[in-house]
Simulated scan of single mutants.
Amino acid sequence: LDAAPVVAFTAPAWTLPAVVGLALPLFLVTMAAQNVPGTAVLAGYGYRAPLGSALRVTGLATALGAPAGGHAVNLAAITAALAAGPDAHPDPERRWIASVTAGIGLALLGLGAGVATALVLLSPPVLVEAVAGLALLGALAGAVTAAVAQPDAREAAVVTFVVTASGVSLLGVGGAFWGLVAGWLMLLLFRRRTVAPAPVEADPTPSVPARTG
């Protein structure tokens, strides 16, 4: 196998099932699980990121990188926590060095993707699945814990997870979209339930008529 990286451009193809079942769920997940938490992490460390400009730049970078197979460019929450915290540098004005170093490191790792792919292809499929499962175990546990943290949205989160993991496909649209729909309907159902107001008890103290004169 050729280990040298090759940039292969792919012409985009627009289909309704792909937009509804893939693009829309990924957009919602990117906004809710990356951009918003990433901005919150930066704000927690005292940085005020211009969210509007950041979203425009990351959106443009995503559109430019998509024909070459690039995934969504976003304000990654975990990476922001690693590079913006005091562990990166005691001085907040010097923590940008960690971000630049991480970017260079990721670029170098990308150049070795061909070697990594070759090693994966030579490994038994069962071993690859086991390693991938163990690597995602912590992320899955953290995601499930965060999803069920709010009692009023716990049922909706579980329904979303179950429908999405089931791999159900309807009208050519994958389970990611139907999981979001099912979770939204469940959340709407539970929020519409209202508790009947408690009856107002009458004051047992007899009223005394006011005296005049």
Rank of each mutant, 00 (worst) to 15 (best):
R154Y: 07
V131C: 12
W14G: 00
A130R: 08
P50R: 06
A107K: 09
A88F: 04
V148Y: 03
A11R: 14
G114I: 02
I97G: 12
E155Q: 10
A83W: 03
V41C: 04
L140D: 06
P37H: 03
D91P: 01
G46T: 06
A54H: 01
V20S: 01
L106D: 11
G183E: 01
L108S: 05
A182G: 02
P209H: 01
L60M: 13
A141Y: 12
G21F: 00
P124A: 13
P90N: 11
L51W: 03
T117F: 11
L180C: 07
A13Q: 10
T145N: 14
L28N: 03
L16R: 07
G52K: 12
A83P: 00
A40Y: 12
V6N: 09
G174Q: 05
G46C: 07
V73L: 09
A88K: 01
D91L: 06
V20C: 02
L170Y: 04
L51F: 11
L185E: 06
A113Q: 10
W14Q: 04
V115R: 13
G21P: 01
G59A: 10
I104P: 01
S207C: 14
V163E: 00
G52T: 11
L26K: 02
R154I: 08
L1M: 15
E129F: 10
M31F: 15
A40V: 14
A98G: 04
A81N: 06
P86C: 04
F177R: 00
T117N: 11
A156R: 00
A149V: 10
I104M: 15
L187E: 06
A176L: 10
V128N: 09
A118M: 09
